[in-house]
Design a protein around this nucleic acid. Structure first.
Lengths: 200, 200
DNA sequence: GTCTATACCGTGATAGAC
DNA sequence: GTCTATCACGGTATAGAC
């Protein structure tokens, strides 16, 4: 890893943290440069503009999210289906504490998307595959006979997806709710008296 | 209404729209002043700073939301309980088309709150009363005997609240889902086979 | 009391030296 | 690959016109 690569990495690491903490607009390139230990125009050697730096970070997030959305169906079985679905939410709730920056940054991109078609397009793409994966999980549950087939299955899946998503948003505000209980309610409502009632 | 009041009103109206469309930071006071038809420093006669103008608009939203959250229990009866709960969500979904600015502005305050204690405090307050009102509605449902009492009632109510809230966020991205079907699924899951199955 | 003119400093961005 | 110098524009403050 050369000097160039090092500086590049340091810029994006510093930018990621500062953007999350202070927001895109309240973080100046001068502040980033100072923290990295270079001068402001030096950043322009690596990025054509501040917007491009912001866009680069989004691309990184985009790829990371796409990886995280992927569900391994092979691990699902009639006996563990409900437990795995519960675990999916619990993991996300626990993860919130580990990278507090993620949600703060991501919400800013949602706002940008409202005014920028390119962000909007990618965000809708993410949301679509996010929603789709929940639909697919439930459909897989039908195949495993854990769930009865149901014309409203898509709406149920989307309900889970929207709830899953907003738990992250609410945690951002520091609102101390029993999020795991809420998630369990939702999963229970979709898998009413599932066949694997081992819990409690 | 005097001249002063007129200018004041026009500033906040113009600011509300521009802030929603372009965002707080990308909307300069010069742009607002130009649209209102006054000079940039004239805004300082009415507001001490740009931040104060932003804060003023938040106060207005804050009051408006508090009004909207209020539910009229008197109108709830065993026969219309489920229908009214459904209607609550449908109304919000329909309203989204009427004031597209609201959510765009509100999301910006959520971001500000992450870095400003005063916004955070008020936002948590709003969320709390928002969550509480859903809990109260369900508790009222128990009293009406539409719902069976249940130790998880609070989690159910919060599930509804989080879903209700995120439907608005998703609509913002232009994602075309059948939001009313999603809301109906959630209400159905809380009021399983309620006593007023007149629908369809 | 209501606003304009003007000046100040910080910001994103560019050109050119080293 | 990085810096100095410079620019236009942003929010802000104040003096003063009417």
């Amino acid at each position: 890893m050369g000097n160039k690569e090092q500086t590049f990495q340091k810029i994006i690491e510093v930018a990621y943290v500062m953007f999350a903490e202070k927001g895109f607009d309240k973080t100046s390139l001068a502040m980033i440069a100072a923290e990295v230990g270079i001068s402001k125009p030096a950043i322009y050697y690596y990025f054509q503009s501040k917007d491009q730096l912001i866009a680069y970070l989004f691309e990184e997030l985009y790829k990371e999210i796409q990886r995280d959305i992927a569900v391994d169906y092979k691990e699902l079985s009639p006996t563990n289906f409900k437990g795995e679905l519960l675990e999916l939410g619990y993991k996300s709730i626990d993860a919130q504490g580990k990278d507090p920056y993620f949600n703060k940054i991501f919400n800013q991109y949602v706002l940008l998307a409202a005014r920028d078609e390119s962000y909007m397009k990618q965000l809708v793409e993410l949301e679509t595959s996010f929603l789709t994966s929940f639909v697919e999980i439930l459909q897989y549950g039908v195949r495993l006979r854990v769930l009865e087939d149901n014309p409203n299955m898509e709406a149920k899946a989307q309900m889970l997806a929207l709830l899953y998503d907003n738990i992250g948003n609410f945690m951002l505000t520091g609102n101390q709710l029993n999020y795991k209980a809420i998630w369990k309610e939702a999963v229970d409502s979709v898998i009413q008296g599932g066949k694997d009632e081992k819990e409690k």
